[in-house]
Design a protein around this nucleic acid. Structure first.
Lengths: 198, 198
DNA sequence: GTCATCATGTAAGCCGTTACATGATTGC
DNA sequence: GCAATCATGTAACGGCTTACATGATGAC
């Protein structure tokens, strides 16, 4: 489910082939998710079966301009593609694109109430695709959730020193997260002209 | 593998039946691991096959004194067991105990170099079973690992505002963890007479 | 005697990991 | 031509989740 969210999220930013999808997912900040081919391709297949993404393999006529420059600078990429004989686009095989139902599903996943802590960072990573009001609700819901956990964190009384330390760490980590969420929410309330919506 | 560590860890503190093992694991500080019966019992079975734990079901003659008072205070527990007719020990079925090879294996797991971040808290939770020197090494290795991640955290340049925020959060979280580890290591160097080794 | 809790397990399905197999493209 | 990288997949295996089945004990 988290992989599904990640795939739909990166594809919402533009069509890509599987290999690139994997790279994008791995490049997400904080090392949120590590995807292997063995999980990625089957996941893409499942998404295709459910028609949340559509795959198209460019036949004899490859598309000319590639809107996504990737990690190379634009000029270098152009130089490179001029230099080679074949008019390649850099894509040989299946190109995946998110469908309309896929976009709907992505939005559902982005606002889903999460228990798994690994899901929330992914929701943040792609929340630019959410309307501002929904995004703010997502952040506030999370904030409340974290605040609640901070309030009711507890353990058995006969606890070991190292387990006490773990409990302390847990508290620290929740507090850090809470402060971060407060900053995020603050930012939502004072929309910054420079770094808006992608 | 993390479940295996958790099971051996709690059993290293005394023999328990499966149901109790699950409760102990869930009670670990910070909600490190949530185990379900569907994963716990098979895992116990595997550990038994590998002779890392041994299971004994108390036959007609239940053991008289229970060394582990559990969450009830000793007096209340005694009162309770007196009150009931049958001389039960509170255990009806399989009682699991860690074996000598199990203890060796636990120690290996406790000092194993981890990539999975979920494993380290478990190592800390049970590191009281480690010799002080080994424990300190474990902490220092982790400290270095976190410091390294803090130094080289990076992302593609064309990053979204929310992904920047995630990156920032990642940094905050690493810094918090680093500070916590420093405190832990500090404590190891000035051994405290009160809260030593369990 | 009935209900909640304690207690142990099995089965189906899903998903992820690792390893393997294959082939195209590009740089040198 | 050859090696590295890009690129797509399959197969085996293991383990986790959820749901189901079963039964004992204790409280009332």
């Amino acid at each position: 489910m988290t992989l599904e969210l990640a795939i739909l999220g990166v594809l919402a930013g533009g069509e890509l082939h599987g290999y690139e999808v994997k790279k994008r997912i791995q490049e997400l900040p904080g090392g949120i998710l590590r995807a292997s081919f063995g999980s990625l391709y089957p996941a893409l297949g499942r998404l295709e079966d459910r028609e949340l993404v559509k795959a198209a393999e460019p036949e004899a006529r490859p598309r000319v301009n590639v809107p996504l420059s990737g990690s190379l600078s634009g000029e270098a990429a152009i130089f490179r593609s001029r230099r080679t004989k074949a008019p390649r686009s850099g894509r040989r095989k299946k190109v995946y694109a998110i469908s309309d139902t896929g976009r709907d599903h992505l939005e559902e996943l982005l606002v889903a109430d999460i228990t798994d802590d690994r899901a929330f960072p992914l929701q943040v990573a792609f929340c630019a695709h959410l309307p501002a009001a929904t995004r703010r609700k997502l952040f506030e819901r999370r904030r409340n959730h974290i605040a609640e956990r901070l309030a009711q964190r507890s353990s058995p009384t006969d606890i070991d020193f190292y387990q006490q330390a773990l409990l302390e760490r847990h508290g620290d980590s929740l507090a850090t997260d809470l402060a971060w969420l407060d900053r995020l929410i603050e930012h939502e309330q004072h929309p910054d002209p420079t770094g808006g919506k992608k």
